[in-house]
Amino acid sequence: MILSALIWISLAVGLTFNALGVIGILRFPDVYTRLHADTKATTFGSIFTSLAVVLYAAGEFFKDPEGQYETLALHTVLAVVVLAFTNATSAHAIARAAHKRGHKPAQAVCDRLEETAK
């Protein structure tokens, strides 16, 4: 019962943050701020939806240890770790490429990188 409630909460939180991330991608003014929304919010949301899956696997595992639910849980955790790592790195790569291409951060109060590049 508690587990079911926890799964519901995880799913709701995950969906909320995924939705916020996508809305952020649509709303923010330039590449860097969009990357903020994309990387943080969608990764966090995906972690929570996957957490729901792991919780589900744990619950079923206690009911029926023969059902190979540990495979589900372990592979899900692995997928999430890979996802978080790759997302962070690709966000860095995109931001650097955008800056090298000369996209200025919109509404910026300071830009130290450009000052040193000159």
């Binding site: 943050f17 916020l20 991330g21 809305i23 952020g24 709303r27 923010f28 003014p29 330039d30 860097y32 701020t33 903020h36 929304a37 943080k40 919010a41 966090f44 951060p105 919109a106 509404q107 910026a108 109060v109 300071c110 830009d111 130290r112 990188l113 450009e114 040193t116």
Partner: peptide, 19 residues
């Protein structure tokens, strides 16, 4: 993420690049 959620909803940002 709570912070980003706040910024997404209100749109109140003050971006910049620091070293």
């Amino acid at each position: 993420n709570l912070d980003v959620a706040y910024r997404v909803i209100t749109g109140r940002i003050r971006p910049g690049i620091v070293r």
